[in-house]
Design a protein around this nucleic acid. Structure first.
Lengths: 154, 154
DNA sequence: GCGCTTTGCGTGCGCTCACAATAGTTGCAC
DNA sequence: GTGCAACTATTGTGAGCGCACGCAAAGCGC
């Protein structure tokens, strides 16, 4: 097991490229969102996720599920939601059937800010992808991200 | 510009998938490396990068370039290198021609630890990819990472 | 040689995160 | 009803990161 397996080590190259691409994009978007809308990438992501689940009825994701959706610990999720709640962008309310669970709604102000920040986010993303495409190591990944867009165009 | 461009918003789907995949993999590898070798993903990545540049002559990456390679700020790179130096895994030495520049070498202990941790890293990566492949949203990305391995198989 | 600008690295401060421990809620066995 | 295990959200603590700043070295015009 201590011997270096070439097939596995080769995977590391792909992972390295993925990690690099992710880092570059995140840093680029972070700078744009932070500068123009005082939002971090995670905060934007959270608003985006919660605004989608809000569509149907009234918001059905518990904190635990939210944490999983944004790949964050429970404690970090609590504080992230608290921050946005303090800014009036979110609202917490207890689950009526299980008082352990807590649901969240995006307020009007939150939706407004989200839609306001979306062009910034998308433009920065487009820009970062173009920049990354120049690197042959990442180009294939960039193409997949671009073609992954339409889930079911029908 | 405030209007939502569908073509750009569609890109966000791909970026979201990429971000999710990255987060899952990183968390998985982090847990494995931290538990078995007391190394974070970034520390492992730094050792890996520095060990490669070390191949040719004696190490030619300055802190700034290292920071760019691991997508970290200069200050974070300083501290990261310092931590590994304190653990005896790295050595700093001043550039002979420009005393502002600082180069780094991986010590024997560092190389040993790196090769020791590599199987752990690769196995965790393989495992995380398999897990992620179950999600149709990420499957295409996973495939690219896997096929990206061989730069030039010839 | 002398001053000014630029470059590269290190440091103080505030913020966010992960981990561990805690409080509140539910469901089940008895 | 009581006790207990499982689950959810929050809070305390230590660590790492980014930003702004400071210091030292190098480049440059004089």
């Amino acid at each position: 097991m201590t011997a270096t397996d070439p097939a596995l080590t080769a995977l590391a190259q792909g992972w390295c490229a993925l990690s690099l691409l992710h880092g570059k994009i995140e840093a680029h978007i972070e700078r744009a969102l932070q500068g123009r809308h005082d939002l971090s990438v995670r905060e934007y992501s959270l608003l985006d996720v919660l605004s989608r689940q809000h569509d149907g009825d009234g918001g059905h994701l518990q904190m635990k599920q939210v944490a999983d959706a944004v790949v964050l610990s429970q404690s970090a999720t609590t504080r992230l939601v608290t921050r946005l709640e303090d800014r009036g962008l979110l609202e917490r309310y207890l689950c009526p059937t299980d008082r352990r669970g807590i649901y969240t709604n995006v307020t009007e102000a939150g939706l407004t800010l989200l839609e306001e920040a979306r062009p910034t986010n998308d433009a920065a993303l487009r820009q970062a992808l173009d920049e990354a495409a120049k690197n042959p190591e990442m180009a294939p990944l960039v193409r997949v991200v671009e073609t992954l867009k339409a889930p079911v165009p029908a």
